[in-house]
């Protein structure tokens, strides 16, 4: 194992402990040290945050851990994002978010935010401007925020199956308001499948945070190439 790999493992262990203890300050301190040691925000995300959150997500899906653990993970990672990564991205000139604007949130009826936070962070470190609406977001709120922020993409997350109809409702509301050409709509989360996403007319589906970024990049590239939405 190289020194860099050893360091990453040490950072991951500290992050896991911070999550277990519900101690955002410990996570923030570790992230500051990591970036001071030369890690870029993207490398930190991919080498530390993403593997830890992925492991937590998988353990949750097997119900080896429960929602409180996810909530603590979200709390710690959010603090790292706000206090360390975002300032670092801005300092590096990342405030010129040239990839596009994404309004993101967890669908109505669902308060889980770990997956949504991962996607938000991953989009951000990849150059998107991200407006995080939080959890339990109703269709109208998604649309209103997208209008207000002049967003390109509305990204919806769902961990609870009962919240899925609200993703469909958001698609239908955008259609009803004649806004499908203005906003691209994507979704992801444990119960969301590619087939279901296609069946309700979403523009994209992300299996995980990495794919979510790929989808957003592809959609934005298509949009730049052909500004009019294909459904119009």
């Amino acid at each position: 194992m190289t020194q860099a790999e050893t360091d990453l493992e040490a950072y991951r262990n500290i992050l896991q402990q911070a999550i277990e203890d519900g101690a955002p300050a410990a996570g923030v301190q570790m992230a500051q040290e990591a970036l001071s040691a030369g890690l870029s925000p993207l490398a930190f995300f991919r080498g530390v945050i993403e593997p830890v959150l992925t492991d937590i997500g998988e353990r949750f899906s097997r119900l080896e851990i429960f929602l409180p653990e996810l909530m603590r993970a979200g709390m710690v990672v959010k603090a790292i994002q706000a206090q360390v990564l975002e300032p670092a991205i801005r300092a590096a000139g990342g405030q010129n978010f040239s990839e596009g604007t994404v309004v993101i949130g967890t669908a109505q009826g669902d308060i889980h935010d770990i997956g949504k936070n991962m996607v938000a962070l991953m989009l951000q470190v990849n150059g998107f401007r991200v407006v995080d609406l939080g959890t339990n977001i109703n269709p109208k709120a998604f649309i209103e925020a997208a209008r207000r922020e002049n967003a390109d993409i509305i990204a919806m997350s769902s961990l609870l199956t009962p919240s899925m109809p609200y993703i469909r409702d958001t698609v239908q509301l955008a259609e009803g308001l004649g806004l499908r050409g203005r906003f691209l709509l994507i979704a992801g989360g444990a119960p969301v499948t590619r087939a279901w996403a296609e069946s309700i007319g979403l523009d994209g589906f992300g299996e995980d945070a990495v794919e979510a970024v790929e989808v957003c990049r592809r959609l934005m590239a298509n949009r730049r190439a052909a500004p009019t939405h294909p459904s119009l």
Binding site: G22, L67, P68, R72, I111, D113, T135
Partner: peptide, 14 residues
């Protein structure tokens, strides 16, 4: 805030 309530609830239950 609602998420603060959830965190408080989870902590107290534990």
């Amino acid at each position: 805030k609602e998420n603060e309530f959830d965190l408080l609830l989870a902590k107290r239950i534990k």
